[in-house]
Computed example of a mutant assay.
Amino acid sequence: MNKILLSSLATLLLLMVVGCSSESSDGASADSKKSDEKQTITLGVTPWTSTVPPTKVARILLEDMGYKVEETQADAGSVYVGLSRGDIDVFMDAWLPVHQIYLDKYSDDITDTAVSYPEAAAGLVVPTYMEDVNKISDIKGMEDGFNNKLFGIEEGASVTQVIDEAIKGYGLDMTQINSSEGGMMAQAMRKMQNEEPVVFYGWRPHTMFNKFDLKILEDGEGFFEKSSVHVITNNKLKENAPDAHEFLSNWSIPIDDVENMIVKIEEEGMDPKKVAQNWIDNNQDKVDKMLGK
């Protein structure tokens, strides 16, 4: 009887040890799995054609690193608010110095992480058939020919204020008409089809310079500076996703490549993800450098 009792107790003790060991192993496995899981990275996307190529390239590479990546569509002002709150992790298309006001406003929460490409020209644009208009100051006295209208992008963009300041600074009797990038271009195209006077906001990289004969007007007063396009991240990214932050710190892409991708997407109707993947496949040396390989 004692032998049976001792045998039963030994069996019970063995089962308890195995059970505890299994529970410990499962717990350790769960903890390990949890630590291996990577956070979701959210990319801010403005309604500009220039934002799409770098965003898609970055998304593919981040997903290859094991991250789940989401995109949030918003105007520029809302993207920076999202960055400051931590709702958005990365913005691939920040235009400096125009966007410097946002960097200053949210300096405690966001960081200028990398230069995507420098020397991006921007300013007021007219078609080349307007031979007598080569400087912004040339418009003064001709405002009636433009129906006193200057076409710009969405009101949430910081350049909207710059354009209003330029109108005032040059003493032009004009009103800025704001809409989406597509809406602005539609207005300009209608005018250009009939070779009517038209002035609007333009920048590189953009297909407008591939599709139309345009010139950026000289700005003697310095309202429109040459821009450099930067990558902005919220300050939590470096801690939460250090390898992703390191990759984005090394980010760089030629402006000509961005413009070529825009043409393929906007003019040739190619899928943005396929265009981005083609760029990655054909520029592995640049990719490896950004990934620190």
Rank of each mutant, 00 (worst) to 15 (best):
E239G: 01
I253N: 01
A166D: 06
T175L: 08
P254F: 08
D219C: 04
N235K: 15
Y201V: 12
E196Q: 15
V199K: 01
S179I: 04
N250P: 04
K273R: 14
Q193F: 11
S249N: 13
E259W: 08
K211M: 10
V258F: 03
V231W: 08
E221A: 11
I232T: 10
H230I: 07
V162A: 04
P254M: 07
L214V: 05
L217G: 00
D243E: 15
Q176G: 02
N235A: 12
P272L: 11
D243K: 14
S228V: 03
M174V: 07
D213N: 11
G183A: 10
F209Y: 14
M174N: 03
T175Q: 15
H245V: 02
E195Q: 14
G202P: 02
V162I: 15
S179Q: 10
D243C: 05
E225H: 13
V162D: 04
I177S: 11
K274F: 04
N235G: 08
M189G: 01
N234R: 11
Q161W: 00
I280P: 07
W251D: 02
I232M: 07
G182E: 12
G169N: 09
M208G: 00
Y170W: 06
W279Y: 15
A241S: 14
V198P: 02
L214C: 08
L214S: 06
G269S: 12
S227A: 15
M208R: 00
N283P: 00
F200A: 05
A241T: 06
G183L: 08
E267G: 13
I280K: 05
K191M: 11
I253C: 03
E165R: 12
M208K: 01
Y201A: 09
D213K: 09
L248Y: 05
N240Q: 15
S227I: 12
W203H: 14
I280L: 08
I177Y: 09
F212M: 14
V275Y: 07
S249E: 13
D281A: 13
I216Y: 01
L214K: 04
I216L: 14
D173Y: 00
W203I: 11
E196L: 12
N234D: 13
S228L: 07
M189H: 03
G202K: 02
D173R: 01
E218D: 15
V229H: 06
Q161D: 13
I262S: 05
S228T: 14
K238W: 00
L217M: 00
